[in-house]
Structures are given as C-alpha cells and as structure tokens.
C-alpha cells in the first residue's frame, strides 16, 4: 500500500524526550479516504505521533510522508495539505464564532469566492448558525469541538488529523461528531484520529493500538476481535453482581464488571459456562443468563496489554 493511494506512510518513526521514549519505531500506512483510528491509553504516545505527522515535532528517528511530503524535510509543505485539530480545540476564546472562522479562513487563504460558502457550511455543520456573534469561550464543549473541526477543514485539506476530538464531549455530541467524520471520509478526506474511548473504535475503518510508544496490534475492528482474541468472553447476568465477581475471582476465573453484568475471559465457552453456573448457584447466587458474546475492543486491548 504505497504510492498515490497512500495518504500517510511512515517507517520506524520515533521520538525521545531525554531518556524517555515517547514513540518507539512506529510504522504505519493510511490509505486515502480511510478513517484510521489510533487507540491507546493516555500517555501511550498518541499525541506525540500525531504532532510528528503534522510537522509540529521533529522525529528523533525514522520518518515518512504525509500527503506525499516528507515530515522531516518538508514540514511546511505538509502543513499545506493537512488540517489539524489539537486536543484542546485551540480556538480563540476571546473571539466570536464568526471571527474565529474569518481568522482561520484568512490563515488558510480560503479564496474570496469560497469564503462565504465555507463559513456557512461550518456554521451549519456545527449547528451554531444563530451563535455567530457569541464569544467562543462561552460555547458548550460540544459546539466548540465542532467549530474547531470546522476551522481545521475550512481549506478542505486532503488529510485531517484529529487529536482526541471527543474528549470531554457528551455522548450525543460524540455520535453526531462521528457522523460528520464519516461524511468527510466518504467525500475523500483521509482521517487520522486518536482516541482513548475504546467504544469509538468501531467508527474507524482501520485501527492501530498503541501502548507505551509501540503499536501492539493493527487491523480493521472486526479483524482485531477475531484475530487477537483467542479466548472467549462470557457475559454473566447474576442477581448479586459484586458478590458473584468475588466468588468467581476466588475460583480463579478471570472476570470484571461490565456495566450491570460480568465479563469473564475463558478458554472455552461451553465448559466454562456450565462450571460458572454451578459455582455461583452453590454460593446462593441466582444466575439469570450466561452467554458467549463478541469481545469488545476493550477486551482485546486488555488481553493484548497483559500479553505484552
């Protein structure tokens, strides 16, 4: 997957800060028009990677291209073909919504004849058409996030980098945000997005899981579930969840609370389900339901981290 269809192509990309290795020899390729998710816990090296890809941070090792330009030697050319939305939705709080749009429109040199239509698009997309003259600092986070996205894509960049775009945003806004991202990808924009919300991973076409600066798994969400999850997940619904957890832990069953149920990681679903039901019922806990479920990406991630 090289050549004209690749939007991002990096090899052995590394960054150290003193003796701390933030990013350790990461290689990845992102195809044009793809939503590429970069998943990992806080401090795993997601932001450092995205900053190197945007030409904001010099790699200490490795390199590659974004939009066909070298991130090491042509960072300014990279900046011409990307949109970037940093973690803090870096808009000017003391400017109104419209002034922010005008500013970024000017900085990105949006042509005069397109300025008004792009502004109208951002206002509509962010759902703040009636808040043009409101100071940005007073907007709720969800609106701010969509405005920041709008400002970052005013110039219709072919590659878009989003660093934790949904942090601090309510679930409803999050969903509509991902719908926007999907629309952009469908119209040909390549999207590279980092998140630590595992449940958001399913919105991505492809994922890389990053942990302690290294990519520990890569693939489509489904592939990851099937390929990396050798063991089965049982969902257990019992009347006393916490007690059930303790009983099972004493029995040596690897399990954790998952919403109102328990998720147990087992070698074989059928035999374990029978044993778990026996153990729980002999402890006086009524079992409503035990069934094999599709592992969530969080399950995959936990398993991978434990294995690494």
């Amino acid at each position: 997957m090289h050549g004209p269809d690749t939007a991002v192509d990096v090899h052995d990309l590394s960054r150290t800060f003193g003796s701390f290795i933030a990013v350790d020899k990461i290689s990845l390729q992102v195809a044009k028009g793809e939503i590429f998710g970069f998943l990992g816990p806080n401090g795993a090296g997601k932001s450092t990677t995205i900053r190197m890809l945007c030409g904001l941070l010099m790699p200490t090792g490795g390199g590659g291209t974004v939009g066909g330009y070298d991130v090491r030697t042509e960072p300014e050319a990279v900046k011409n073909v990307i949109g970037y939305m940093s973690q803090k939705f870096s808009l000017y709080d003391d400017l109104t919504v419209e002034e922010n749009i005008n500013f970024f429109g000017g900085v990105y040199r949006v042509p005069r004849d397109k300025k008004e239509s792009r502004k109208a698009w951002v206002l509509e997309m962010a759902g703040i058409g009636d808040k043009k003259s409101v100071l940005t600092g007073t907007l709720p986070t969800g609106f701010k996030q969509r405005l920041a996205l709008g400002c970052a894509v005013l110039h219709e960049p072919p590659v878009l980098f989003l660093d934790e775009p949904t942090s601090g945003v309510d679930p409803l806004s999050r969903r509509s945000f991902w719908n926007l991202i999907r629309e952009m990808a469908e119209s040909g924009t390549t999207i590279f997005v980092t998140t630590h919300h595992m449940e958001e991973a399913d919105y991505c076409d492809r994922l890389a899981l990053i942990y302690k600066g290294r990519i520990i798994a890569e693939g489509a969400p489904m592939e990851l579930r099937q390929h990396y999850m050798k063991r089965d997940i049982l969902e257990i619904e019992a009347d006393k969840t916490v007690e059930a957890l303790e009983v099972l832990l004493r029995e040596g069953v690897d399990n954790a609370i998952f919403g109102s149920t328990l998720h147990a990681t087992v070698e074989d679903a059928e035999t374990s389900a029978r044993r778990i039901r026996e153990v729980l019922e002999s402890s006086g806990i009524a079992v409503e339901r035990i069934e094999k479920v599709m592992p969530s990406l969080e399950d995959v991630f936990v398993t991978l981290i434990e294995a690494s």
Partner: peptide, 9 residues
Amino acid sequence: TMEQLISTP
C-alpha cells in the same frame, strides 16, 4: 492556540 497556529501554513 499556538499549536493550532503552527499547524497552518
């Protein structure tokens, strides 16, 4: 806001 600004051309 500087991080956003320096990501532009």
